[in-house]
């Protein structure tokens, strides 16, 4: 929710000037969102059409889903048109709330002018020295997604203490920790404290897995 994420977009997401700006895909990766919206809408449409309706109330259980489907199809189509017409270009003005709130509205309400915009621009961290091919760091995101998927798969066979410690270690490593051996200890301590505090004191049942089997 910080506005800092937004400012850096200017520096790092743009491709080196003079090249690649003509490619159709540039600034249009948001089509992923359009695809998600269509997928949800189609899922709802099929579910509504094949619904096994109980009772005879009118308006029935299919009424509201139809409205939601209309909203989703409309939003997805309009978003697609919007992306086609105006690809996502870097934008340097202050963005309070990172898309959560209309910058136009907040500029008007707060009588914001150039000095507030400048307060963020003269921050020392404005231009990163390097540019990357993609805005997002997919390697780190991929590591994390892989980590949580592995955690869910291993939770029941291995038990909470081991799998949670492993997840902690992996996330810390992916986000840039440089003390892997030390982190194993931190992770184990963290997961064991949770097991004790919430399992023993508050009565949550966490899977004990291997460790529980040995004890």
């Amino acid at each position: 929710m910080s506005i800092t994420q937004h400012q850096s977009e200017a520096g790092s997401s743009v491709e080196p000037q003079g090249k690649a700006m003509s490619r159709f895909g540039t600034g249009r990766s948001e089509f992923v969102v359009v695809a998600v919206l269509y997928a949800v809408a189609i899922f709802l449409t099929i579910g509504t059409a094949t619904m096994n309706v109980q009772g005879k109330s009118a308006p029935g259980p299919q009424f509201f889903p139809v409205l939601v489907c209309i909203v989703l199809y409309l939003a997805a189509t309009l978003l697609a048109i919007h992306i086609l017409r105006t690809p996502n270009v870097p934008d340097n003005s202050i963005h309070p709330g990172h898309g959560q709130f209309s910058a136009d509205m907040l500029h008007d309400l707060g009588h914001l002018g150039k000095e507030e915009d400048a307060a963020y621009e003269d921050a020392p961290s404005q231009t990163p020295g390097k540019t990357w091919k993609t805005y997002s760091d997919w390697r780190t995101v991929g590591l994390l997604v892989g980590g949580v998927v592995a955690f869910v798969l291993l939770l029941e066979p291995l038990g909470w203490i081991i799998s949670a410690a492993a997840l902690f270690w992996l996330v810390a490593y992916a986000l840039g920790s440089r003390r892997p051996i030390f982190d194993i200890g931190v992770g184990l301590l963290f997961s064991s404290i949770i097991q004790l505090a919430f399992g023993a004191a508050l009565g949550l049942s966490l899977p004990s897995g291997l460790v529980g089997g040995i004890l």
């Binding site: 800092t4 994420q5 850096s8 790092s12 921050a123 020392p124 961290s125 990163p128 990357w132 805005y135 997002s136 760091d137 997919w138 780190t140 995101v141 590591l143 994390l144 997604v145 996330v171 992916a174 986000l175 840039g176």
Partner: peptide, 15 residues
């Protein structure tokens, strides 16, 4: 967390 992961090695730290 995913969002932080996508930016942590790219955004410079604030002073």
């Amino acid at each position: 967390v995913f969002h932080i992961a996508s930016r942590i090695h790219r955004d410079p730290a604030a002073t």
